[in-house]
Design a protein around this nucleic acid. Structure first.
Lengths: 138, 138, 138, 138
DNA sequence: GTGGTCTAGACCACA
DNA sequence: GTGGTCTAGACCACG
């Protein structure tokens, strides 16, 4: 599971975490019973305070998405409601539109924008691959 | 220009107004020199406090997007993007990354994602062109 | 209503506030419908953070003791359950015992302890009188 | 020596242990040179983690109240109050004030309050005397 | 090491 | 001015 925080969006960081964990669960990127990243390491990785992650996890627990065993960790629950295909499509479209509108606002041409998209696709794929290798090496 | 406030998103209302005015300007829905809605009616329409709209307009003025002529109203300035190139690039990259990560969470393939990007580019370009025509027809 | 925070007791400050507001309500020192001190001034008087008082008031609202009207203030509700006489007596006895045990721990004689009690009774009565005068002068 | 933990008070458990050991020493229930309960059985009796009891004993040792002989146990030291006179006075004053304010909240008159103080002084003195007799009888 | 709580500072929305 | 929220730092209890 890869989390990406947008600090300039104005959206509370803890809600960004909540939404992305839900998205990962909805997509199957995070499997039922699987452990979520521990609060402390995740906070360090995202460069936010421990409590911000803790608040996100507490919210997820309240909504019944995860289960938290103090001293053990947090785990995705079996019975989590997966999002419907149309809803996922709509959420993704919103994110794509946001990027496109921003690009137009900054007067970036269609070609430059597509080039950037390919760059970032490659960069994040590379990062994800490194992550996997690291995990296997353990 | 139509503004839509999402009270559940957690994003500060005044920032939602700021962003949407910027987006309207970027998309051509709001033309340079054109007047923005007055504070009082807009606040009523959006069901928010007048202070909140005033704060959004003050922020837009600070960023050089609009110009306030006391007693006359607020108007979109001619050259309203004053951010440095690297900063704009970084902000745009964040938006692109956000969309890509969301796509990954939803297990959308690279090809399908790029197809969606092209679709939305076309759709938004079409929308912008319609605005232009509407303006010329006036 | 006079609040007295004991910073060395280890008991959370916000719970001390909760208990003392309940005690004041139970005793009639705070009347139904009456306004509680506003968060900011009270926090300043007690030398604690605004949020600490806010948390105490939120807890009191959750328990149904007070009612909070955002932008207006916090008010004691009509239907608050007054404590039974025996319970009040028991709570007071606990506080007295705590002081006496502390005195013995510090090897303060019975006479010195009683002298201190009289001193503090006079001091706090004086303080309360000054408070009343200030209120009347307004 | 009987220890009683209140899990609802919000006061840290290890501090409750510290205070009650001090009170036991002050009241004579625990005599200088006498051994304190061992960590493991006490933790089981109080239903708390062993670390918590260990932390309390470490704090008591730091404050000079007890002495830890590794492998032998923990023992109450002969002279266990090392605070400066002003500090002790201040701590005691806080406890006295707390009781007085509680009395005021419960609208207990000065006379009734003083009567209660005398009652409790007598009661606790009696209790301490009983402890002394018990010790001499051994 | 794990998660949880209390206090604090800065900011938001509203009257 | 009012109360409410988000983020952060320090500490607590537990395995």
């Amino acid at each position: 599971m890869i989390l990406q925080i947008n600090f300039k969006s104005g959206m509370p960081v803890y809600l960004q975490i909540v939404d992305q964990v839900k998205a990962a669960a909805a997509s199957g990127a995070l499997q039922p019973g699987e452990a979520l990243p521990s609060i402390r390491p995740l906070a360090e990785e995202l460069r936010v305070n421990r409590n911000t992650v803790a608040k996100a996890y507490a919210e997820l627990e309240n909504e019944g998405v995860i289960e938290t065993l103090p001293g053990r960790g947090c785990f995705l629950r079996e019975n989590h409601s997966a999002l419907r295909e149309e809803v996922r499509r709509e959420l993704l479209t919103q994110d794509v539109d946001q990027a496109i509108v921003q690009a137009h606002h900054f007067q970036v041409s269609r070609e430059d924008f597509l080039k950037l998209v390919h760059e970032r696709l490659d960069a994040l794929e590379e990062k994800r691959r490194a992550h996997e290798d690291h995990k296997e090496a353990q």
